[in-house]
Design a protein around this nucleic acid. Sequence first.
RNA 1: GGGCCCGUAGCUCAGCUGGCAGAGCACCUGCCUUUUAAGCAGGGAGUCGAUGGUUCGAAUCCAUCCGGGCUCACCA
Length: 515
Amino acid sequence: MNTEVQQEGEIFTQRREKLEQIRALGFDPYPHKYAFTHTLTRTVEQFSSRTAQELEAQPIPLRVCGRILTIRRHGKASFLDLYDGNRKLQIYVKKDVVGDRLWSLFELLDNGDVLGVEGALFRTKMGELTVRTDVLTLLAKALLPWPFGKFQKKKEGEGPEEVWYSSLADVEARYRQRYLDLVVNRDSREVFLLRSKVVRQIRRFLDEREYIEVETPMMQARAGGALARPFVTHHNALDMDLYLRIAPELYLKRLVVGGLERVYEINRNFRNEGISTQHNPEFTMLEFYQAYSDYRDLMELTESLLTEVADQVLGKREVQFNGHRISFDHWQRFSLVEAIGKFWGGPAPAPTPADLGTREGVGSALERAQVPYDHAASRGELLGKLFESVVERQLIQPTFIYDYPVELSPLSKTRDEDPAFVERFELYIGGLEIANAYSELNDPEEQRERFEQQAAARARGDEEAHVMDENYVTALRYGMPPAAGEGIGIDRLTMVLTDRHSIRDVIFFPHLRPE
RNA sequence: GGGCCCGUAGCUCAGCUGGCAGAGCACCUGCCUUUUAAGCAGGGAGUCGAUGGUUCGAAUCCAUCCGGGCUCACCA
């Protein structure tokens, strides 16, 4: 949309003239506060069962406020609807009652204006709960028109009986002018209210288990803890480049070394990579660490956590996502190698664990699945590639995939039975990667070697390889208790719980303009 | 970055085999003191994303650019 054209437009000019007329009448179009007695939502919910007779016998005086949705003018008496983003309430304004001066003000009101109304409840002939206005107060004049659409009575069922349908459909406008979207698209508001509840329930769950919430640096001298390209910024006084963090992991584990045995952080990570319906350059991650535990404990914890979140936030354990019915009562677990065989979609027969035991075997499976791959890559890297292309999108029901190749996991502890693999799992729901967790590598010398291998990969041109972090190795040399840690993508989890298919629909202000 | 699609009134869109720029909602004026998608009567509103080209004539055809959506690749 072109904001300049809109602001030079006819409606804007008309409304500015009305604003001047309002001032000329002696009203402040932008007063400081309004002492309401009831929210619109509370008014509707509390008094919706009162009959006309009850309201007449026992008048309920109140002051309410909200945004004007529509005005139905009838000469010397009019109706308007106020809206608080949740419920709307009808207001009746009668010239005889409010007097000439307030009536003149009323005549200068438009939809979108924020209004306070003092009066008493009654029911109209048609039975609608309505405030009969004694005093009306303009609380904020809207100079630009709101894209309110039509409204429609909802049929039988849950939720408010009326639903407003927005005429704001343009996707870019919905993101750029989220404030409009939040008011006119009821669904949008509900997504963000639900997201807030998800975060609150996660905090409650972890707090109940003796976790403490912490904050670690967003700007780091080395961007570690994940395999991704960072954003670079510059500190002028120190004259040094700093990186926006790609993960808080290495700092959280330093805290575990420091005796904070259960820590979590819910905060932003920044990754300088592609933008898609599943990726925003900044995204919110829950990351938590639990000492004296391994990744299997975290699988249990994750099941409990997400089941409780579903219970508390949705009130049920089933959710519709992308045309699938997802149940938080049925959790599956497969090793990565197992999953490749089970979900194999290429020509029969599916590769067996033995087939996948060699680099050549994995390479031939990739060829049969017609997946192009780097022939210089190691077996573990090829396994990861094969898993992503063959299995990932098929993981609709909550599924843990465990035991990842060591090459892909420089911070994870290897399995005792097979050091080519690490104790790591990822959780998939609805085809989305929701969580990533592992038993933390706490052997400082092995960690140092892993970093060196990553440094070698980086030297070969892999920009996403992990950087060496001597300082972190030093922390491990003081002895980190055995621990397991996990990251859960809050944005993606919200997508699943709200049936949104773009990450932009669960972030208030998503990044919009790619290069 | 590749592929496909889109950009016309404040909003949602039609018009696109070239020939006076349209509809609904919103807005303005008038009437209307229990309406509720209020009603009735009248009216205003556009750099057709931008630039260049073809043409007697371009919203329409061509090229380039800008912005957006979906999708593939990389990533969580």
